[in-house]
Design a binder for these strands. Structure first.
Lengths: 215, 215
DNA sequence: ATTTAATCTTTACGTCGTCAAGATACAGTG
DNA sequence: CACTGTATCTTGACGACGTAAAGATTAAAT
C-alpha cells in the first residue's frame, strides 16, 4: 500500500473509463474529493470542511482519501491551489478589458477583491487555512506566486509608463497587493459593508478605494 | 447549574482571596483560562488552542470551562477582545510620540503592523478565528471598533489639516486600514519577507509602504 | 493466467467539543 | 452557629474528527 507522497502522480495512466457500475474503484476520486471539498466550503464554511465529510459527500469510506492525499492539509492545499488559479483568471479577465496601464492595474485589483468577496470561505482557506502555509505544499506556493505575478506585472507597467524609478516597482507592487488584500479581508472578516460607503457591490467599493491610489 | 450567558457577570462579588490550598474553587478560573489560551496560542498557534488544552494548562478538569464560557467560541472571543485592546494600546503608544497629523497617522499604522507581526497567532484569531465573527460576541465588536477608531481619528485629522473634503475621510480611513491590514496579513500569511525589501523588521517595511501613501 | 500493485473497506485508537449528574465549598439567612 | 441554596468543579459519557493497520477487491503487467 503505497502512500501518496511516494507515488508517481504525473503520468497516472488514467483508467480510460469511469464506468458507473464500478462501486469499488471510483474512477477519479482525487478530483471528486476536491470538488466535494469545494461544495462543503461554499455551504458550511471552513469549519464544515473535513476529510470524513468530503469522503461522505463523494460516497466513499472515511479512509479512502488517504490513497490520494497524505493528510487533511494536503486536501486543503489542493483546493487552495485551485483557488489561486481561479483568482488569477478573475484578475486577468478584468485586466484584459482595458488597454492603458493604469486602468489595467485598477481592473486587476478589482478582480482580486471581486473574487475574494465572491468566494469568502475559499479565500480564507487560501490565506491561512488550518495547518496550511504557502510553502507547505509544493504546488501551492507556485500557484500563489502566479497570481501575485499578475498584479506585479501590472504595477510594473504603470511604474514604467509614469517614468518612475523601476527600483520602486517592487514596493509599489507590495503596496498595491496590501491594499487589495486588506480591503478584501476587511469586507470578509470585519464585515465592512459596501453600503456604508454608498456603494452597492464590493467591486464598486474597490473601484472607489483604488481610485484614490496614487503611485 | 446556571449557564454563563444567564449569569450576572459584572459585580461578581470577588471571593477576596485566592488561597492556594483550595483545590476545588479556583479563585479566578475565567482569567486563568484566558491566560492559558494566550500561552497555547503563542506556543502552538491557532490549532493548538482548545478548550481541553486550556483547562489542562490551568490545572482543571475538561468540563470546568463551561462554567465561565458558553462554548469554545466564547473563550476565543474573550482572548480576541483582549487582543484588540492590546492592538489599540500598540497604536496609541506610537502615535503619541509624534505631534504633526501625518506622522501621527503613519505611526499609528506602523503600530498596527508591528502588533500583528509580533503576535501572528493572536492576530489571526482576532480576524477570522474558527466560529468567530466580530458580531458574534457582544464584547468583541466594540473592542474591534475601538481599535479602528484610533486609525479613523488619525486619518480624520490628516484630511482636515490637508484641507480636503471631510466627506472623503471615511474612504481615506478605509484605505489606510486596508493598507496596514493587508500588509500585516501578507507578512504573516504569505510570508512576505521584510529582508526582500531591504528592511530588517516588519516595522521598517511598514514605514516604507506607508511612506508611499498619499491621501 | 498468475502475479503485483493500486484502490477501497472495516475496524480501531486517541483527541476534541459538549452534556448530564453528582460532589464540594462558599454565602447569606434563621 | 446550623441550614440551605447556589456557584463551582469533577467524573463519565456521547458523537465527530483525523489517522493508522489489516484485509478485500479490482486493474495492469507479465
Amino acid at each position: 500500500m503505497k502512500r501518496p507522497e511516494e507515488r508517481s502522480r504525473a503520468p497516472k495512466k488514467v483508467p480510460a473509463r469511469a464506468r458507473q457500475g464500478d462501486a469499488y474503484h471510483h474512477g477519479d476520486l482525487r478530483q471528486a474529493l476536491i470538488e466535494a471539498a469545494r461544495a462543503l466550503l461554499e455551504q458550511g464554511g471552513l469549519e464544515a470542511l473535513g476529510l470524513r465529510a468530503a469522503a461522505r459527500q463523494a460516497g466513499v469510506s472515511q479512509a479512502a482519501p488517504y490513497h490520494h492525499f497524505a493528510d487533511k492539509a494536503a486536501l486543503l492545499a489542493a483546493v487552495a491551489a485551485e483557488g489561486f488559479r481561479e483568482l488569477t483568471r478573475a484578475m486577468v479577465l478584468r485586466r484584459d478589458l482595458e488597454t492603458r496601464p493604469l486602468p489595467r492595474l485598477t481592473a486587476t485589483g478589482i478582480g482580486y477583491v471581486a473574487f475574494a468577496t465572491a468566494n469568502p470561505a475559499l479565500f480564507r482557506l487560501m490565506f491561512g487555512g488550518p495547518g496550511l502555509n504557502l510553502s507547505s505544499d509544493p504546488a501551492l506556493g507556485p500557484a500563489a506566486a502566479a497570481a501575485y505575478e499578475v498584479l506585479r506585472e501590472a504595477t510594473l507597467k504603470v511604474v514604467a509608463a509614469a517614468g518612475r524609478d523601476p527600483a520602486d516597482a517592487m514596493l509599489v507592487s507590495l503596496s498595491a497587493w496590501s491594499l487589495v488584500h486588506g480591503l478584501a479581508k476587511l469586507i470578509i472578516e470585519a464585515e465592512v459593508d459596501p453600503l456604508s460607503y454608498g456603494t452597492a457591490t464590493p467591486e464598486a467599493l474597490a473601484r472607489l478605494v483604488l481610485g484614490r491610489m496614487i503611485l
